[in-house]
Simulated scan of single mutants.
Amino acid sequence: MTGNIVSRRYAKALFSVGQKQGDSELAAFGKALSELSQILEDSPEALRLFQNPVFSADEKKAVLAKLLEKTSAGPVVKNFCSLLADKGRLPALPAIASDFAGMLDKVQGVVRGKLVTAIKLAAKRQSDIKIKLEEQLQCKLELDFGVDKDILGGVVLTVGDKVLDASIRAQLQMMKEQIKRGV
């Protein structure tokens, strides 16, 4: 729970700085944080280094500087990351990036979701589904598509914190429960 509070506070602080500088800067901050978070996800050894108390803040900053060269981070984000290093909060970077992205989505009116099917859908079909869902939700939707053969058929749609499970697996599970209860 503490990590969530810490990451939200740092994300909120950077977000407020970005809002004062304008929408384009705010989006640039989000992009840079996302890129850095992706780099850390791809190389967990860097994240372990940031968590290791044996290394000094200066050593961590040196590694961080190399990582930031691979991103589109501007001076504000670089200074923000340097502050995180000074405060020993570099391990929270992925959570901060996630919280920042959530705040950015809220301001921009974007809702994220995921549609899971038993088979891969064609690009045209994915586009049609996304357009229909945007019309129904009346907002901009960032929809990821996934495949899970275990659902047998149908779809599992997750949008925000809501889940619609219209899969054959779920229907079979409900039938199983009804049989157990003797309905």
Rank of each mutant, 00 (worst) to 15 (best):
A92Q: 14
G22D: 07
P94S: 08
L157R: 09
R8T: 10
K180Y: 11
L14H: 07
N52G: 05
E69R: 03
I131H: 10
A46T: 08
L67N: 02
F145H: 11
G154S: 07
M103E: 09
D150C: 09
M103L: 14
V110D: 09
P94M: 02
K114E: 15
S72D: 03
D58Q: 05
G88Y: 05
Q21S: 08
T117W: 14
R125S: 12
K20T: 12
T158C: 10
K70F: 01
K114T: 14
V63K: 00
P94Q: 04
Q171L: 03
F55R: 02
V110L: 15
D150P: 02
V110H: 09
G88L: 03
V107C: 04
L152G: 02
V54M: 12
M175C: 04
S127H: 12
D161N: 15
G18H: 06
S167V: 13
G146E: 13
P94E: 03
G154N: 09
G30D: 09
D23L: 11
R125G: 07
R181I: 10
L121P: 13
K70W: 06
L143N: 01
D161I: 06
D86M: 06
Q178K: 14
G154F: 11
V63L: 05
E25F: 06
G154R: 05
M1T: 12
L36K: 02
V6K: 02
T158P: 08
F29I: 02
V54C: 12
F55L: 12
L152A: 02
D23Q: 12
E142A: 13
S16T: 15
F50T: 00
L67T: 04
A95K: 06
E59S: 08
L104N: 07
Q171N: 09
A101K: 09
K31S: 09
K124H: 06
K120M: 12
V156E: 10
L90Q: 00
G146K: 09
Q136A: 15
I129K: 06
C81G: 02
R48V: 14
F29A: 00
R169D: 03
K149F: 04
Q21L: 14
K180M: 14
K61S: 00
P75K: 15
V63P: 00
S24I: 12
E142N: 15
K78E: 01
A46F: 04
A27F: 09
D23P: 07
L26H: 11
K124C: 04
A62S: 10
G18P: 04
E59I: 03
D42V: 08
G153N: 06
F80Q: 07
L143H: 09
K60I: 00
